[in-house]
Nucleic acid binder design. Structure first.
Lengths: 186, 186
DNA sequence: CGGCGATTATAACGACTGGTCTAGTAATTG
DNA sequence: CAATTACTAGACCAGTCGTTATAATCGCCG
């Protein structure tokens, strides 16, 4: 696996996280990654869409690893999830509200217009949700409620990121952290 | 106020709700609204961005009206918000998972790259949040908690829409409805 | 009916898009 | 060292983008 190829993927992740799929052109990816145009098509002969899918998969693995670590950091799911949200809030703030929700924009852009991208996003969300659900199951919630709560947690993460980035304020993420904690101990 | 102008705005709302700002080209808006190209610039001389801002403002007013009606439909905020989410779930499903979150994609695309669009989205979210917050205040929640919960509710709505549309399944919205109800009665 | 403002129709523009192609250079291997 | 494979660089392409310009047509009103 080459460095240039990784660089292209990483830059694609970053740009599509910030502005989505259609607003990210290949020339911008090339410029910001320093990769030559010939290399882009050498490594990604299927083109832009295939590159985006690789970027989604790459970022999905990173987030899954973060989620697993976050879930393992505390015994009680409430503490784990609250802490995860607080860490995320810090990350979003540190990025100047430019990062957060790595696939959110793509997921919406592609939900009904691009099957391949939609499938990649769907898989990512399902992987992440499964990690949270496993933690809730471990924490003693019934299977039915664990599934429902896991879905809600992912929704809250995505929604709170959108609000924080739009309002350029970390409060929505912190509010979400607090209230999810209340719900999970209810 | 002319019909053609309204038609253009309505089409813009629909297309940008489905796929976002950058994926929506003026030619598609023209084609689907049946408006002549000359008219587009006649009515919106400042161009695409100004049109999008009008669309955001237009849709924000509609959602605000829906939210007010939803909040007024029940005495207890828990019932009002739960019911609102269930109605929304039905709407998203009926659209074949193509609609929902009228400004979500734009909000993310523009969060750090387009100040005017970002401001329009920020105003919309704040208007909606204020409506939910007022209902919570009425319902006897402390001012601090009402504010926090209102933020969470908007986040949950946005997040659950993303998941439902990505997964083409109404469950995330229904799960959110159930668990928000639990939280608000906790 | 004519004048005037509102609206339409359409060609053209420059910039940018994703993608193709090809020759050249770099790296690896026997 | 030569052959082969990996990678680069840049020109080129057709198409699309948002916008401008301008003349023509439409609708309203006195």
């Amino acid at each position: 696996m080459s460095n240039k190829r990784d660089e292209i993927i990483a830059t694609t992740c970053r740009l599509m996280e910030m502005q989505g799929y259609h607003a990210t052109g290949l020339n911008q990816i090339l410029e910001e990654s320093g990769a030559p145009k010939g290399s882009l098509y050498y490594y990604f002969p299927e083109g832009k869409e295939a590159l985006a899918i690789e970027a989604i998969e790459h970022t999905s693995r990173l987030i899954a690893a973060n989620l697993r670590a976050g879930m393992a950091a505390h015994d009680h799911p409430a503490d784990a999830i609250t802490d995860f949200l607080q860490t995320l809030a810090h990350y979003v703030q540190t990025s100047g509200f430019q990062a957060g929700g790595p696939i959110t924009a793509i997921a919406l852009e592609a939900a009904s217009t691009n099957e391949a991208l939609n499938a990649a996003c769907r898989d990512a969300y399902q992987d992440w949700q499964a990690i949270v659900e496993a933690k809730l199951n471990e924490g003693g919630y019934t299977a039915v409620r664990a599934r429902r709560l896991a879905s809600l947690v992912i929704a809250v993460i995505e929604g709170a990121i959108i609000l924080s980035r739009t309002q350029r304020n970390v409060a929505p993420l912190l509010d979400a952290a607090t209230e999810i904690g209340v719900l999970l101990r209810c």
